[in-house]
Amino acid sequence: MSTKFFSIHILSRAVLYATLLIGAVFFLAPLYVMVVTSLKDADEIRQNSLVSLPGGVNLDAWRLAWDSACTGAQCSGLEPFFWNSVWMTIPAVLISTTWGALNGYVLSLWKFRGSETLFAFLLFGVFMPFQVVLLPMSQVLGWLGLSSSIMGLILVHLLAGLPSTSLFFRNYYAAVPKDLLNAARMDGAGFWMIFFRIIVPMSTPIVMVTLIWQFTQIWNDFLFGVAFSGADSKPITVGLNNLANTTSSVKAYNVDMAAALIAGLPTMLVYVVAGRYFVRGLTAGAVKG
């Protein structure tokens, strides 16, 4: 009986690992093709198969994609678009996360009359298609004098991400024991002291989840970038699209692949460095209920 059970256990583990391996190969195959193609020159791409390894490490395509490739009429590569995304993403992520933490704190632990209604409206924003807000948002940016600017894009992403960040923090803080807050109030702690001394130190898991979520959403956004940016404020997703659609006599697939990797590298690095915190944060939120 024990031998049969052991055999079934080994078989089930083998099937599980085989399934995971097939899934990993399936999802990593496009990344492999992109990497090896970006390291080839034009002759290697024409002469060899799609999955063949390059004869050597050739970074010319990466250099062209970064500072020389044409993105329409401009031939300065993805560098200006990359830095536009950096200046847009970092403040938008930090401010939206902080703002969401305060909203979640108030809506879960300092409830007031109408707080549930306000939360319902915020929740509605999570499911509202972004295409709906393009016209009114463009009018608001025009009134504020922020059209076609990085500051305008930051504001758009703050407002677009606020429902999600508020939802994350509100659900996380809802499980904080009320006795803990009552004890702090009995000791004379107020709104801000409770937030900074008690709530913030226990918020590391959900803060990491929100930071990674917001960074991914904002960095990879194309809709707002193409709709609200100007000539000097286009994010990297728009630059990548322009580069891929710029016509030339010979299609430089190696440059296109290098450009795509440059555009996706920050989010990949974020998940490699902080991915375990993202999983821990999701697990902590699930355990807290």
Rank of each mutant, 00 (worst) to 15 (best):
S2N: 11
T3P: 02
K4M: 11
F5K: 13
I10T: 09
S12T: 15
R13H: 03
V15L: 15
T19H: 01
T19P: 00
L28Y: 01
P30R: 09
L31I: 13
Y32L: 07
V35C: 09
T37W: 08
A42G: 09
I45H: 12
R46K: 15
R46Y: 06
V51T: 07
L53S: 07
V57D: 06
R63S: 14
C70L: 05
T71R: 08
G72W: 04
A73V: 13
A73L: 10
Q74F: 11
L78D: 15
E79D: 02
V86A: 01
T89K: 01
T89H: 00
T89F: 02
P91H: 14
T98H: 00
G100R: 00
L102A: 03
L102G: 02
L102S: 06
Y105C: 05
L107I: 12
S108F: 07
S108Y: 03
K111Y: 10
R113N: 09
E116L: 07
E116I: 09
L118I: 10
L122S: 15
L123G: 08
F127K: 08
F127G: 04
M128I: 05
Q131V: 05
Q131C: 01
S138L: 11
Q139C: 04
V140E: 04
G142F: 04
W143M: 14
S147C: 04
L153W: 02
L159Y: 04
A160D: 15
L162Q: 14
S166A: 05
N171A: 12
A174F: 09
P177K: 12
D179L: 05
L180P: 14
A183Y: 07
A183I: 01
R185Q: 14
D187K: 14
A189N: 12
I198P: 13
I199W: 00
P201I: 12
M202K: 09
S203A: 10
T204P: 04
P205D: 14
I206T: 09
M208D: 03
V209E: 02
V209S: 01
L211M: 13
L211Y: 01
F215E: 08
F215R: 11
Q217T: 15
D221F: 04
F224P: 07
G225N: 08
G225E: 05
V226F: 14
V226T: 15
F228D: 12
S229G: 13
S229F: 11
A231P: 02
T237N: 12
L240K: 14
N245G: 13
S248R: 12
S249K: 06
V255E: 03
I262Q: 11
A263F: 01
G264F: 07
V270K: 00
V273A: 09
R276P: 01
Y277M: 10
G281N: 03
G281A: 02
A284L: 08
V287W: 06
